[in-house]
Each structure stands twice: as structure tokens, then as C-alpha cells.
Computed example of a mutant assay.
Amino acid sequence: MSEATTAPSAGRSVLVTGGNRGIGLAIAKAFLANGDKVAVTYRSESELPEGVLGVKADVTDEASVDAAFAQVEAAHGPVEVLVANAGITKDTLLMRMSEDDFTSVIDTNLTGAFRVIKRASKGMIRLRKGRVVLISSVSGLYGAPGQINYSASKSGMVGMARSLTRELGSRGITANVVAPGFITTDMTAELPEATQKQYLASVPAARFGSAEEVANVVRWIASDEAAYISGAVIPVDGGLGMGH
């Protein structure tokens, strides 16, 4: 593709953690359509679109993260856009929540984001440019019963992005949070029908969102057009959280 037909923010090395399904996969596809070189991390094998590089990685293990980055860097060059999307849930009410239920979710969702951001920042600092996008959740700001572990992990991403902005903002690096609401994915489809109806009733848009709608926002916040936005929290929730 010639320079004349390539958007200024296309052709970059993009890494999406947990990008083999759901919102992560939609994000990977959006960057691929943008003309970027896209890699995703995964824990279990799955079919990926043509042109997407899959690397096996466990975000709870620093050595595994480092090895994954080395693979991506060898194939696509230093990571210029990092989307920290890998996450798990272990929903249960506080009185039934075990210590492992809490710490494992924090370690994957929040500390996992820290591990990949720390590794990516090395290359971004050298390049004096970069985009970090953390995929949070409306429950991180709005709260949700049975999700004290998940909500805490997703809320922590806001402080992480804002501290990163203050540390690395002068190096041409932005860090923002995208907070999806109720998005139709395999994970949300597993929720009881009564819970889904309850959520739907509280969404002003009166519908659930699509993974593509989240992906479009992520692609934009990582673009040149959004170069002066950092430390922001962008809800994609049909008005559910109302900016909490």
C-alpha cells in the first residue's frame, strides 16, 4: 500500500491481549481493517482472521509476557499500540467470595495490564510515541453486585491510565480507558436471562451494544485524531453508567 493511500495512523504494530474472541477479536479486526500489523495474545488455541498474528501468552506470568512481546517485535517491530483487554470473571457475592476468587481476578485483569504496559513502554519510550488503551467496564465505575473482584480490577485501570499519562505524556504516549457496558458476547450470553433483562431495563439506549461498537472507539482513541486525549475514560454503554 502506497503512502498516499495509507492513513497517517495506519501501518503500526498493534498488540491486543486476549484478542482471540469477543471484544478483543473485534478490536483486532478493526485495526486490521485500518491497515495496521496486528497481533493478539491468547491462552487457548482458536481460529484467527487471516493477517492476524497469534501468540500464546499468560498475562499473569512476566516471562510469558516477555516472550510474547519478543515474538511480536520480531514479526512486526516494537509495539506502538497496546490494547490491554485480557480479563476473567469469577462472579459471586462478597460473603461467598474466596480469597482466590478475588486475587486471581485482580492478577489477571489489573496486574496483567501492568505487566503488558510495562513491557510495551520500553519500545514506546524509545520511539517517543505510543498508544495504550485499557479495556475496563461500566462495572468498574458504576459497581455491580457479585463483582467486587471484577469491579475493583476494572476501576484500578483508571488510576493506572492517569498515572501513566503523567509519567509518559511528554514522550508522545497516551493512555486511555474504554469502559464497555452490556455488550453482546459469548461471555455475557452466559448470564441468566433474568439478569440480562434487568440490565436491559437500565440501559437508556434500550439495547445491548456490539463488540464492533467498542472496537471502533478503541481504534479512534488510538488514532492521530485523538493525539491530545490522555487519561480519559470513554464509556461505550448506551448511557448505563452516565459518566460515573
Results as ranks from 00 to 15, higher is better:
residue 146 G to M: 09
residue 107 D to S: 15
residue 164 L to H: 14
residue 232 A to N: 04
residue 196 Q to V: 13
residue 147 Q to M: 12
residue 169 G to T: 08
residue 185 T to V: 09
residue 226 A to I: 09
residue 35 G to M: 13
residue 28 A to L: 10
residue 238 G to S: 04
residue 56 K to N: 06
residue 62 E to P: 00
residue 158 V to M: 04
residue 237 D to P: 01
residue 125 I to N: 06
residue 26 A to P: 06
residue 163 S to E: 10
residue 17 T to R: 07
residue 17 T to G: 10
residue 4 A to N: 13
residue 124 M to W: 07
residue 42 Y to C: 03
residue 61 D to K: 14
residue 233 V to C: 03
residue 17 T to A: 09
residue 111 T to W: 06
residue 140 G to D: 09
residue 55 V to Y: 02
residue 79 V to D: 01
residue 46 S to L: 09
residue 29 K to G: 06
residue 235 P to G: 01
residue 167 E to I: 04
residue 158 V to S: 04
residue 22 G to L: 08
residue 159 G to E: 05
residue 113 A to K: 09
residue 17 T to S: 14
residue 16 V to K: 01
residue 112 G to P: 05
residue 92 T to H: 03
residue 170 S to F: 05
residue 70 A to R: 09
residue 112 G to N: 08
residue 65 V to P: 02
residue 130 G to V: 13
residue 90 K to F: 02
residue 242 M to E: 13
residue 63 A to L: 07
residue 204 P to S: 06
residue 173 I to K: 12
residue 174 T to P: 08
residue 73 E to R: 14
residue 207 R to P: 02
residue 190 E to T: 15
residue 143 G to E: 10
residue 111 T to E: 03
residue 56 K to G: 04
residue 153 S to C: 05
residue 210 S to R: 12
residue 241 G to Y: 02
residue 56 K to T: 05
residue 57 A to N: 02
residue 209 G to R: 00
residue 22 G to Y: 10
residue 133 V to C: 11
residue 199 Y to I: 14
residue 123 G to Y: 05
residue 139 S to V: 15
residue 86 A to V: 00
residue 94 L to I: 11
residue 147 Q to D: 11
residue 193 E to P: 03
residue 60 T to N: 12
residue 73 E to H: 05
residue 215 A to K: 01
residue 5 T to W: 10
residue 116 V to D: 02
residue 178 V to K: 04
residue 239 G to L: 02
residue 68 A to P: 08
residue 94 L to V: 12
residue 196 Q to M: 13
residue 83 V to P: 03
residue 50 E to Q: 15
residue 224 D to A: 09
residue 196 Q to Y: 00
residue 219 R to S: 13
residue 136 S to W: 10
residue 236 V to C: 03
residue 57 A to F: 05
residue 194 A to V: 14
residue 49 P to D: 07
residue 65 V to Q: 00
residue 213 E to H: 10
residue 87 G to F: 08
residue 204 P to C: 06
residue 137 S to C: 08
residue 35 G to N: 09
residue 133 V to R: 02
residue 129 K to G: 11
residue 197 K to Q: 14
residue 16 V to C: 03
residue 125 I to K: 14
residue 74 A to S: 14
residue 15 L to T: 11
residue 91 D to F: 08
residue 197 K to T: 02
residue 12 R to M: 13
residue 150 Y to P: 02
residue 29 K to C: 12
residue 217 V to Q: 08
residue 148 I to A: 15
residue 152 A to H: 08
residue 99 E to C: 00
residue 131 R to Q: 13
residue 68 A to D: 03
residue 164 L to C: 11
residue 78 P to N: 07
residue 140 G to I: 05
residue 172 G to Q: 08
residue 106 I to Q: 11
residue 226 A to L: 04
residue 199 Y to V: 13
residue 234 I to M: 11
residue 2 S to F: 05
residue 196 Q to A: 10
residue 14 V to Y: 01
residue 196 Q to K: 15
residue 62 E to K: 11
residue 27 I to Q: 04
residue 153 S to D: 12
residue 117 I to S: 11
residue 61 D to S: 10
residue 233 V to R: 01
residue 45 E to P: 01
residue 44 S to L: 07
residue 196 Q to P: 00
residue 139 S to L: 10
residue 243 G to S: 06
residue 45 E to S: 13
residue 34 N to C: 00
residue 97 M to V: 09
residue 165 T to N: 01
residue 74 A to K: 15
residue 19 G to R: 06
residue 231 G to P: 03
residue 168 L to G: 02
residue 129 K to C: 12
residue 24 G to Q: 03
residue 24 G to A: 05
residue 230 S to E: 02
